[in-house]
């Protein structure tokens, strides 16, 4: 039984590290900031998720598992908020996504906050 849990932990942790490596490689390779956000969300979801589940299996039913779940849930709740805030800030500063057609470009630009709403 213990050996089985060890094997499962190994698989989960290696999977998490693999997803994190692919995400970090994507951060280097992809072309613009919006595309890199997808690579970053790879790290934020399955990368950290699989590693933490693997460590939960090792910890068993203890307070350590509860803390791992807390950290994981917190990351899962906050990372989309941070990504969305970053995307809106980028649009407000006229950093638009690189897309094929002009209509799509306009679609993204239409989300810009009007300059009158900023005040002075």
């Amino acid at each position: 039984m213990a050996a089985l849990i060890d094997i499962a932990s190994w698989a989960l942790i290696l999977g998490g590290v693999a997803f994190s490596l692919i995400g970090a490689y994507g951060m280097i390779k992809l072309s613009d900031v919006y595309a890199r956000m997808h690579a970053a969300s790879l790290i934020d979801t399955l990368g950290i998720g699989l590693i933490f589940i693997g460590m939960m299996l090792q910890a068993g039913f203890t307070i350590v598992t509860v803390k791992l779940v807390l950290v994981l849930v917190f990351i899962l709740f906050t990372s989309p908020v941070a990504t969305h805030a970053l995307a809106r800030a980028a649009i407000n500063e006229d950093v638009l996504p690189v897309v094929d057609t002009e209509t799509e470009r306009q679609m993204a630009a239409s989300n810009k906050t009007k300059s009158s709403e900023f005040g002075t």
Partner: peptide, 17 residues
């Protein structure tokens, strides 16, 4: 809904209106 879209890799919500 918007946070679920962003949490799923491959799609990022960049504005709600």
């Amino acid at each position: 809904y918007a946070n679920s879209i962003t949490l799923t890799p491959g799609t990022v919500s960049i504005g709600i209106d």
